[in-house]
Design a protein around this nucleic acid. Structure first.
Lengths: 358, 358
DNA sequence: AGGCGCAATGCAAGCGCTTTCATTCCAAGT
DNA sequence: ACTTGGAATGAAAGCGCTTGCATTGCGCCT
């Protein structure tokens, strides 16, 4: 059983020292062409690949960065990561992915794990985490960038978008369609600054018109279609039901559409629905879901860029704000005239078959 | 600037040798409780974390496994990976993810990269790859398991399902609804044994009834909604159009539904459509997409189990076949009586508004 | 001709950890 | 009391690589 070839084996065969082989691998320009070629032949012949541990130990770099995302089962993260990974790969950097399942403690643990794995940098989703975690990162001098979030006065490098502004914009559009009884199905806001900002954005827009956004017109639901559906049905069951439901993300939006239909309401004639993210299903729904388009791929690429910049020198980087865009589709229509604008009562008349689709 | 604490620092503070500290970390049972506690306190106090490179170098293990998937932007892979990752994490193993973008050469490169990163094992999607790659894996003595595929006589450990049988089952169901003019929109079969097996399964079922599956009733489309839509429109544009379209996956199925509608056909009255995978969108479509449910999470968990078993001793493992299930939903209906059963001509009468949805 | 500087290469010291082997200590057996 | 075996621990040899410094060889300047 022949040994896995080592630098020394290559050196022996090429008739040079290990130092030279190492240089051929890491700084080819510093080696005379003939020597270099001899070494390369030896590498080829032995099928030599550097030993990762040895390299990491000696150079204290791993050319690896880590990302901690809530879950891969969410198209938006998947897409962003994909782009991130591609760009990192182009720079010879490998991506290590860990998931937190939307749990703060688990995220902290994963960050530790990744740092223990020797990652050269980290990509973290959102801004909401304990100071202790940030202190830990600082203590280890670990470069990181936050994604999916952006604030003008964020203390750390981030590349993302202004969730508050985008959500506010959504609400303003909805208001523009004449809606006044507006409800929101938000994502879980605990430990999630994105979900929280979206709620605040919507609330701010409504407040500008003197409208409030509070329970029971504000429901939180976790990231599942069924949760969105249940929430919508709850909202629509009441007399004094909303004429529009703003959802914190597209999955909840899709769920809301399913729920509205199940409750016998038509979209958008009886109730308008909006989402956030613009994932594939938004276009597939019938009517298609009005939503906020977020260029996830671009965000991933920018994150890669920042991270690579952050990695080498002590060069600082500036945060990047990605532009989002409201996409108006069929699920958003004018407020039904029959709906009361401010009163409490509602005749509850439904314009469609209560045993409609689904 | 204090140094990152090393084993030696811990040893000094605890008043023991580095060997003992190492043992506390790796085989706590082998050190006396009092000593152990002293060491643990020192570890705590210094905030010591083992250096990954050092450990990898000395022990030649990394507690890391790699997965190479076509793309993260595909819900099925994401879901399987998520489960895989969770179970590996429970065993203290980290997952390294790389993507091949459905490209054979890129996959080979990623495998090399991951092995160079010192992964202890690999998860690979499907079975179709060059012998050279398998030889390389064998040469490096790298344990691996194949996922998303299963054959009784597969030469390597795999955990997946029988794509051929499942696809054949789909076709039989479709035949059971009286369809005889059946077309298929397949995924790209090049370098993709899953897509290929699905085509063959459908073909086999049709052959049993004396029917063929060939161009122009067999179209390949890449993994995008638009591609499925375009393919469906092409299929339906012809006179002698199919009454049922079997799609190689749900994304193509969703695309086909969009395309059929755009061409003015109703599903399932004018044309039935089936998918494969049972991702979220299948249920959201209207009518919902009939498809094959694949328990991706279970598959991910089994893959984790095999991989962990494969990792330590030379213990061999046996492949696992996961059961799939056909889910009948609204998109599959009886063959329209107006459609000719075997002839070439077709009056092309459409029963719906040619300017229908989309 | 002698000296200088630079480019190319080699030497060898670690990087932080694991692990074999040797040592020490103690309790139990004779 | 003396041996013996086992448990706990330490000493030290690497694991494969990078890199600072030393060495060599060469062309060129004075």
């Amino acid at each position: 059983m022949p040994h896995r070839p080592s630098l020394e084996d290559v050196a022996r065969i090429a008739g040079v020292s290990t130092a030279t082989v190492s240089r051929v691998l890491n700084a080819p320009a510093r080696v005379r062409p003939e020597t270099r070629e001899r070494v390369e032949r030896a590498v080829e012949r032995l099928g030599y690949t550097p030993h990762f541990g040895g390299r990491a130990l000696a150079s204290n770099r791993t050319d690896t960065v880590g990302a901690v995302i809530p879950t891969m089962e969410n198209a938006i993260f998947a897409r962003g990561l994909q782009a991130l990974q591609e760009d990192l790969a182009d720079a010879g950097v490998t991506l290590l992915v860990a998931t937190s399942n939307y749990d703060k403690a688990q995220e902290a643990r994963q960050i530790q794990t990744l740092l223990a794995r020797g990652v050269d940098g980290l990509v973290l989703v959102g801004e909401a985490r304990d100071d202790a975690v940030y202190a830990y990162l600082a203590g280890r001098a670990a470069p990181f960038v936050l994604v999916w979030t952006w604030r003008a006065d964020c203390s750390w490098p981030c590349v993302g978008f202004d969730n508050f502004a985008a959500a506010r914009d959504v609400a303003e559009r909805v208001l523009g369609f004449g809606h006044r009884r507006i409800a929101m199905i938000a994502g879980v806001t605990r430990d999630n600054d994105r979900a929280r900002s979206r709620v605040q954005g919507v609330r701010a827009a409504l407040a500008d018109r003197g409208l409030a956004l509070e329970a029971p017109f504000l429901i939180e639901a976790d990231y599942r279609i069924e949760a969105g559906s249940a929430a919508a049905q709850r909202l629509l069951a009441d007399t004094g039901r909303p004429t529009a439901i703003i959802c914190g993300n597209d999955v909840l939006g899709a769920g809301a559409m399913v729920g509205a239909r199940a409750a016998g309401y038509r979209v958008p004639q009886d109730v308008s629905i909006t989402g956030f993210d613009d994932i594939d299903i938004a276009q597939l729904l019938d009517p298609a879901l009005s939503t906020v388009h977020v260029p996830h791929r671009r965000m991933g690429r920018m994150a890669a860029k920042l991270l690579l910049a952050l990695r080498d020198p002590q060069g600082t980087v500036t945060s990047v704000c990605i532009e989002t865009e409201f996409i108006e589709r069929g699920s958003l229509g004018v407020s039904p005239p029959s709906a009361p604008e401010g009163g409490l009562g509602d005749d509850g008349s439904r314009q469609s078959d209560p045993h409609g689709p689904l």
